[in-house]
Amino acid sequence: MSATDKVFAGSIPGIYDEYLVPLIFADYAGDIAKRVAALSPSVLLETAAGTGAVTRAIAAALPGHVRYVVTDLNEPMLAIAAQRQGKDDRISWHQADAAALPFGDASFDVVCCQFGAMFFPDRVKGYAEAKRVLRPNGAFVFNVWDRIEDNVFANEATDVLGQMFPDDPPRFMARTPHGYHDKAVIKADLERAGFSDIAIETRPAISRAPTAEQVAFAYCQGTPLRSEIEARDASKLQAATDAVAEAIRIKHGSGPVEAKIQALVITARP
């Protein structure tokens, strides 16, 4: 993982929330919310919450008596999540590292995490922390992106930027968001962390946007991919965004666009 892969700062969090969340995260947030609600937790922890796509979906799905603790390592992302959610007495917000949680053992019925595990520097440690704070009959519910080839817009953006910067291709999307998809590795990491009952489901969906330009803007300027582009030539950020938009427009049309996305959804129990 590059040093910039976890940096969501400046204008990135706002663009991420406005454009990338509806593009690729909202569908999976609803899925995680249904799975969590079906477990009927009385106290719930979310790690790596980002700008709160899952938080909003879960808060809408859970009854009023549930206590909900929401965390993220990145304060600018968490601030947007709290602002978007508004006042909700069930929810408390904490800046926290998923690999060093500031909570006692056996504190939660469910721990959930949407598309955060790929960013853990030590996944086994992060999983072990989730297990530590779970009650004995609790569940850890999370998802990760499948391989980049099954996530069309991300793959197309990566290909275009590779052509634009052939000597040093920006590989953030392939390296990190889509770099942790081997089911055997995921299962082994969870087992090393102490989980024994592990289910991994492949879940395809469709990514949609009003225009190709919005897709390109979301990926090139609403993720750490922006930092990679600017590190190579800051003056080419808009040109890179335009090139990705043009490629998507050629393949998917000049009006509303859609393409396949795919993730793995995991439920693990001690």
Rank of each mutant, 00 (worst) to 15 (best):
V111N: 02
I15A: 04
G52H: 03
A79G: 03
S107G: 10
K87Y: 13
I198H: 03
D5N: 07
I200V: 13
A154D: 10
Q221N: 07
A234I: 08
I91G: 02
A234M: 01
A9P: 01
V141M: 05
N151R: 11
I80Y: 00
V21Y: 08
H65E: 15
K260I: 06
S196H: 12
P13E: 04
C220V: 15
D72S: 11
G10N: 14
P177F: 05
F142R: 05
I198D: 01
G126C: 07
P224V: 09
G104S: 12
N155G: 14
P13H: 04
P256L: 06
S40L: 06
M1E: 10
F119S: 02
Y68L: 07
N74H: 02
T158W: 04
S196Y: 09
R35Q: 09
H65A: 14
E75F: 06
D233W: 02
A61S: 15
D122P: 04
F119A: 07
A157S: 09
P169E: 08
A209C: 08
P76W: 05
P256F: 06
P256T: 09
V7I: 15
A184I: 07
I229V: 15
A247F: 01
I200M: 08
T176F: 00
L101T: 05
E156G: 01
N155A: 13
P22K: 10
D72G: 12
A209S: 13
E75I: 08
T202R: 13
S207E: 11
D197T: 10
V36D: 02
V70D: 01
A82K: 15
S107C: 09
Q221E: 11
S196D: 13
F140D: 03
T211G: 03
K125T: 10
V66E: 03
S107F: 06
D197I: 02
A243M: 07
V21T: 12
V70K: 00
I261P: 00
Q238R: 12
V244G: 07
V124G: 02
S196M: 06
T211H: 13
M164H: 00
L62D: 03
A100N: 10
M164G: 01
A117F: 14
V265G: 01
R226V: 07
K131A: 15
K131R: 15
M164C: 01
A216W: 06
A60N: 13
